[in-house]
């Protein structure tokens, strides 16, 4: 059986039951493919041992790029390329450059981070996602378990494990 094609899908009604269920299922040595929720469930990252996102680092790097670019641009334009005396001040003095530097820092940090988020999460407008259960955006928490990866357990074992862990429904889903 190929990996990433055939799944057992458990549907949970409540996020607390889900969190306990995840612990139980993982305790039985089953690897969970992913859990799809209509809203962010707090504590699910610990339950699934998801590492902390590195997006803040990306945001910081983009922000620093913005700071550097803004300063270089202003100092080069007003200090070197076309120096002008404005109000009897230095050609390139730092204080009046702060507002634009701040704005460009924020702009690049925000756009860069959001762009990174889309790339990291593999989200694009023309992509139709694999839907394990259409109710996962509406009101259900949907847990997908890859059958090929968990070949140590039979389908029936996985089904009853999901039931015991609090799933209100257990289905099978295959993708071509």
């Amino acid at each position: 059986m190929d990996a990433d094609k055939h799944f057992i899908v458990g549907v949970f009604d409540d996020e607390e039951v889900l969190l306990k269920g995840i612990g139980k299922i993982r305790g039985n040595g089953v690897k969970i493919h992913d859990v799809y929720s209509p809203f962010p469930v707090h504590g699910i990252d610990d339950a699934l041992s998801i590492k902390r996102s590195r997006l803040p680092i990306a945001a910081f790097m983009f922000g620093m790029t913005g700071t550097a670019l803004a300063l270089l641009m202003q100092i080069w334009m007003l200090g070197y390329d076309w120096p002008m005396i404005i109000g009897g001040k230095n050609h390139a003095s730092l204080p009046p450059f702060i507002p634009v530097t701040f704005e460009l820092t924020v702009l690049l940090a925000a756009l860069g981070m959001v762009g990174t988020f889309f790339i990291a999460s593999d989200m694009k407008p023309y992509k139709w996602p694999r839907q394990f259960d259409l109710r996962s955006t509406e009101d259900k928490h949907v847990m997908a378990i890859d059958l090929a990866i968990n070949s140590g357990k039979t389908k029936d074992e996985l089904r009853s494990l999901l039931r015991d862990s609090g799933a209100s429904e257990v289905n099978e889903k295959s993708f071509e």
Binding site: S37, D45, M123
Partner: peptide, 13 residues
């Protein structure tokens, strides 16, 4: 953008 709502995506989000 083809949103799915997986646990990791929500955390990043």
């Amino acid at each position: 953008f083809g949103w799915q709502g997986g646990a990791k995506t929500w955390m990043r989000y």
